[in-house]
Design a protein around this nucleic acid. Structure first.
Lengths: 339, 339
DNA sequence: TTGAAAGCGCTAACAA
DNA sequence: TTGTTAGCGCTTTCAA
């Protein structure tokens, strides 16, 4: 038993297709008697209007495309969740793509989405895209007038709505907090040193240092690559026995750092305080539990969906906006209290 | 500048639409001269065939629907990732829905997907659906001949391909392992006691007990609900000072249990060993690191996608199969070694 | 080598 | 109150 169409119903009743269409859409043009019969029958055979046909006709698919670089990252999972929730509540489905931090896959994905499949796109740039600064695929998108909102990993090169985390302020705030709790030598461990996000956090960190009259030292800015051994880098970092605070720019690094410190017999937070970014599931379960910067992923997702759908529906020659979402510092056991 | 269509190109060259179509599809029917001109132009204006129109024509959307109960659960995230990867590599997009453990949302979602949007569906039942045993929405799906593969939380009531984790064996294996490391009083803490999955794990646990000549005690089977206080339940459980092993049926509960035990000054694993289900990110970062049962989420996702796409493409009156994926016990510090 | 026409499933303007 | 027609963008016979 294949999908029932209007035509099937029409022939069944010996009426025209448009009559059935109208009946099913409860049009006043149809006699209530016929309408009832048709509606009952439609129910019976589980008639569902073909979404594809409607999309073609209306030139609107009621779905939005979402491209995230990495779904296993809790922040992105949260954003994704927020988007799904909000989109759904506003009657949109979402087709989701994971760029896997790869430019090539991002391109392929954009290609797929730009062929009429979605009414708009929400995305965050892949690492590779940010590194290589190749945005042609996205420029095409914008030329083609496909509404897009970018979040978190955005770029100035593109004209569209954006939502960014206030990473500068987050870096600033975090550093300032550490300073206030008495830290004098604060290091940063970054696994994302060539992303816009990473740079902003470091800039905020530097500003806070300056305000506290602490001179920035290059050796305190630790960049870890995929194949670097964090353990070695940290050993090096704390060899002088002077570092008393560490800011890790992602959750895993934060937890790793914590464990390495514990392993080395360093007291956290008394000897070294630790703060991490992304308030995921790990942070509150380790001990000592980690003070973290929450980026409010779910909220960002909801916001992105709202902005995109607003633009799709009321269209809009509204100017593009960039919303900045402030982070929240969630203090736990890995930092000392402000005296 | 809106989307270019075949018609636009046709009028631009003063030829017919079908000519353009053929030219773009590199048909031999068209003179290579014209073909080249058209292809070049198409390139220039970024022509992309409208995916929706093609779907309507071909009655195939090249996308599959995925319904997971809860994306914030690491196991599901992993499965999701596996599906995305595999589907993508086979030329399919995925439209994703989160049922949020709610029957109503699952129904709504199935509704959306069954209107021609997808060529097939991969899903895991929501908690509520399993509890209420209301499967009418899914029966409709199957009647409508929409290929579906269920994973993890499946049901006997539905005739389709299935992938299950060997939860019985996992429960058995885990318990047996604890017994072999010397545990005599093994408790189970279950947050999913009315799911098929939970029941199977407990059954495996009971079998292992029996084989070890340990009588099953009801008080050792702790069911925790959403609003129960785990701390109280555990206090109660270990009041007798005889429990020496705990199996937690999900990751969060495992970590919580571990922390509560540590808080109470219980030595893990010496006094009480702890094993948890779902080898997510938490387990290896807590200390002592947790021995966990890995369900191979990503693999399950890939498998599901493969099975579904095979069925979609070679169609198939092939009989439905149920694949069972064995779990792996990843031993870490929270359990003792087998002597 | 090119084009006309039909049709995928549906809606909407217009006729009857 | 019902039906006819055109058309969304595309492919595919079949005819020219």
């Amino acid at each position: 038993m294949k999908k029932t169409t209007l035509k099937d119903i029409a022939t069944h009743f010996g009426v025209s297709i448009s009559t059935v269409s109208k009946a099913i859409n409860d049009s006043h043009e149809i006699s209530s008697e016929l309408k009832l019969k048709i509606q009952d029958f439609a129910q019976e055979v589980h008639y569902r209007p073909n979404h594809i046909a409607l999309s073609l006709l209306k030139k609107s698919t009621k779905t939005i495309g979402v491209i995230v670089p990495n779904i296993l990252n809790y922040f992105f999972t949260q954003v994704f969740y927020g988007i799904e929730q909000k989109a759904n509540s506003r009657g949109y489905g979402i087709i989701s793509c994971i760029s896997d931090e790869s430019l090539q896959k991002e391109r392929q994905t954009v290609d797929l989405l730009s062929s009429g499949t979605v009414d708009g796109i929400i995305m965050s740039l892949s690492e590779e895209t940010q590194a290589k600064k190749d945005l042609t695929h996205l420029q095409d998108l914008i030329e083609n007038q496909i509404p897009m909102v970018m979040f978190d990993r955005v770029t100035d090169q593109l004209d569209c709505d954006k939502i960014v985390v206030d990473d500068f302020e987050a870096g600033y705030k975090t550093t300032k907090y550490l300073v206030e709790t008495g830290c004098k030598k604060i290091a940063v461990i970054s696994s994302i040193s060539n992303s816009s996000v990473g740079k902003l956090r470091v800039a905020g960190y530097q500003k806070a240092l300056k305000e506290a009259n602490i001179t920035f030292e290059d050796r305190l800015l630790v960049k870890v690559g995929k194949k670097d051994d964090l353990q070695v880098l940290i050993a090096l970092l704390i060899a002088n026995n002077d570092v008393d605070g560490i800011i890790a720019l992602d959750e895993i690094t934060a937890v790793d750092t914590l464990n390495i410190l514990k392993l080395k017999g360093v007291q956290v937070p008394d000897e070294i305080a630790v703060v991490g970014f992304t308030n995921g599931r790990l942070s509150k379960y380790v001990s000592p539990s980690l003070t973290m910067v929450s980026q409010h992923g779910k909220y960002i997702g909801e916001l992105a969906a709202d902005i995109l759908i607003d633009r799709i529906e009321h269209d809009g020659l509204m100017p593009f906006t960039t919303k900045t979402v402030k982070t929240t510092l969630i203090t736990r056991e890995s930092t000392k209290n402000i005296p």
